[in-house]
Amino acid sequence: MSLFKQDLNRAVTISSYPCRRAMRLSPKLAANLLALSCWLVLTCLAVAQDLPPGKRLPSVTMSPPRTITVTRGKPGTVDLHFRIDGGFHINSNTPTTEFLIPTTLKLTAPTDIVVGKVIYPPGEQMSFPFAPDEKLSVYTGVLVLGVLVRPLVTVVPGKYAFHGQLKYQACDKAACYPPRQLPVDFLINVAKGSAARKRNPGQSPHVHR
């Protein structure tokens, strides 16, 4: 029997505070109240998701990125996680028509760290009530972008900050919102790495092999 059932099977008594001594719920009442509470939460969430257009503004947020360590002279990939609010979609990096605004990430890198290409996932092919016969390439929910970075061998080991902006244009099922830009900031840790093997080491009578 689970702990939770054990809790329900005993009469619910909270005796640590004198004012709560009178609070005694039968297991059946507690179960009913619990079910009612869950239903209330789920109903409110469903209603919040289904607000008519324009009643909620779209929101794309970035999860705090994990600082990755990249060995200098070697490439590494930073994964950036974004969350698109429920009920909204944004165009993918390769939208289906020329007039749609693609999602793009623009970054400025510290000196001596090369930013390679940004890896965009393929968009979901979705149709919407406003155009049921047309498939659009969009992102919904969680979006993960990969950024390739490569510190030059001359970079001093340490933490380096990257700054940029995610440009996106969001729509819901009946309206579209002007393009917006989300600030993007993350750090990478550049490590010295293992000493490189020299092909032609300095000749010295003191070098022992």
């Binding site: 007039f99 919407f128 406003f130 047309e134 729509c171 009946a174």
Partner: peptide, 9 residues
């Protein structure tokens, strides 16, 4: 706007 799909409908 040209980027607004519902507008096209």
């Amino acid at each position: 706007a040209t980027w607004c799909q519902p507008c096209k409908i």
